[in-house]
């Protein structure tokens, strides 16, 4: 039987978006943990990277996965007033808005990048956010950068 290459296998299967998530150490990561320990089901499309603060996510770390072909990037931090570093979450929100605006100029839908406030007690909100994001990314279809090698 012919051995399928990695990319052919991917096309053969139904499209499952791949999401890179940057979760803040103090709130959102704990929220994701709570979703797990509470046995709340959510789609397994997410790859979590724990960061100390959503405010520490440089645009570079959002752009790299998008150019590499990730279908979505989620950045989640603490709610208003809860930031462990006073206001990193608010600054992250501005930075994400900036990256989205730039990418929209180049035809990458803003909806590939999500920014959320998720607290440590909001396991259900985390699961729900991932679910909604996966649904939206399925509507958008695969990121065309997956096949682009000249980046």
């Amino acid at each position: 039987m012919k051995q399928l290459s990695v990319s052919e296998k991917r096309v053969a299967q139904e499209f499952e978006p791949k999401i890179i998530a940057f979760l803040c150490n103090w709130c959102s990561y704990v929220g994701a943990d709570l979703a797990g320990t509470s046995r709340i089901q959510y789609p397994p499309n997410i790859r979590v990277i724990r960061v100390m603060c959503s405010g520490s996510v440089d645009p570079l770390y959002i752009l790299k996965p998008i150019l590499e072909g990730a279908d979505g990037v989620l950045i989640a931090g603490c709610h208003s007033g809860d930031c462990h570093y006073l206001n990193g979450n608010y600054k992250a929100r501005r930075r994400v808005a900036m990256v989205k605006t730039m990418l929209e100029q180049f035809g990458i839908p803003g909806d590939r990048i999500w920014f959320s406030f998720i607290s440590a007690s909001e396991g259900r909100v985390f699961a729900d956010t991932v679910r909604r994001m996966v649904t939206r990314l399925k509507e958008l279809g695969p990121n065309s950068m997956k096949a682009q090698w000249e980046i």
């Binding site: 290459s5 990319s7 440089d58 645009p59 570079l60 752009l63 790299k64 150019l67 072909g69 730039m102 180049f106 997956k146 096949a147 682009q148 090698w149 000249e150 980046i151």
Partner: peptide, 16 residues
């Protein structure tokens, strides 16, 4: 990807 450009990340550089 099957192939990549070398040096890599020129577009990433400008976008960043």
């Amino acid at each position: 990807k099957g192939l990549i450009k070398m040096p890599a990340d020129t577009i990433l550089f400008h976008l960043t």
